[in-house]
């Protein structure tokens, strides 16, 4: 059984993408744009993501965890503080995560479009 997700769920939603692997970032961006979302970024660093959160106020976010030796935890905390939902898209397992990252829905790499769609729509219910 596939749940039917009405297209308007995503129309015009502004999604921040934080991913340091550029090819994967472009892939995720394309998928989100196909859903009808507007992508903010993709950005590759915590600082760039925090800037976007402050100035662009995204509706939601898709976060990679490991960013060139640092983690996206501060971004997750900032989103939580602003009550903006987010998904974690990572090669790690949940047991490896900490803080606000641990509580978010987790998708494993490589990205699965159907799962991304279902989980993303879950953020807007």
């Amino acid at each position: 059984m596939t749940t039917i997700i009405p297209p308007e769920t995503f129309a015009g939603r502004r999604i921040l993408v934080l991913e340091d692997e550029r090819l994967i970032a472009l892939d995720v961006r394309d998928i989100l744009e196909q859903f009808g979302c507007t992508v903010l970024g993709p950005v590759a660093t915590v600082d760039a993501a925090l800037q976007l959160i402050e100035h662009e106020d995204p509706d939601a976010a898709v976060l990679d965890v490991q960013l060139n030796g640092t983690t996206s935890e501060p971004v997750a905390e900032a989103l939580r503080a602003k009550e903006r939902p987010f998904l974690v898209l990572t090669a790690y397992r949940r047991s490896h995560l900490s803080g606000a990252l641990k509580e978010a829905p987790l998708l494993n790499k490589p990205v699965d479009e159907r799962k991304l769609r279902t989980n993303l729509s879950g953020l807007f219910q």
């Binding site: 090819l23 994967i24 790499k109 490589p110 990205v111």
Partner: peptide, 21 residues
């Protein structure tokens, strides 16, 4: 083992991205 698992998944992510791009 954990690092290897991480690396494999990331590589699969790249493989997928190459296909979609």
């Amino acid at each position: 083992a954990r690092e290897l698992g991480h690396r494999v998944k990331n590589l699969l992510g790249l493989v997928r991205a190459l296909a979609s791009q």
